[in-house]
């Protein structure tokens, strides 16, 4: 079964003309994210598998599946490092 990812419940998102600003209430940090990063974080409000996240990018951008998967993997790694993801509840 594919691993599923979900964003940290302490995150709050703002959409500013496509780009994003993210608050992490737990760490009281805030930062900006790209349009694609915001799209992925919005999708991660509910648990998502890697293929589902790849589909988010494929629906929005003219990229190959390989490029989209590489982008998602890199994004997830960045999110893990920054404590933006939590284990799926009950998973």
């Amino acid at each position: 079964m594919s691993e599923r990812y979900v964003r940290h419940p302490d995150l709050r998102l703002a959409d500013v003309e496509g780009d994003g600003v993210v608050l992490h209430l737990g760490s009281r940090r805030y930062f900006s994210v790209s349009e694609s990063g915001l799209a992925l974080l919005q999708a991660l409000e509910a648990p998502r598998t890697l293929p589902e996240l790849v589909d988010v990018l494929l629906e929005r951008y003219e990229v190959t599946p390989e490029q989209a998967e590489a982008s998602v993997r890199q994004f997830l790694e960045t999110c893990r490092t920054a404590d933006l993801l939590v284990p799926e509840a009950g998973g």
Partner: peptide, 11 residues
Amino acid sequence: ARKDALTELVR
């Protein structure tokens, strides 16, 4: 840019 203004307002 709006994004930069928003991060400043958060601050």
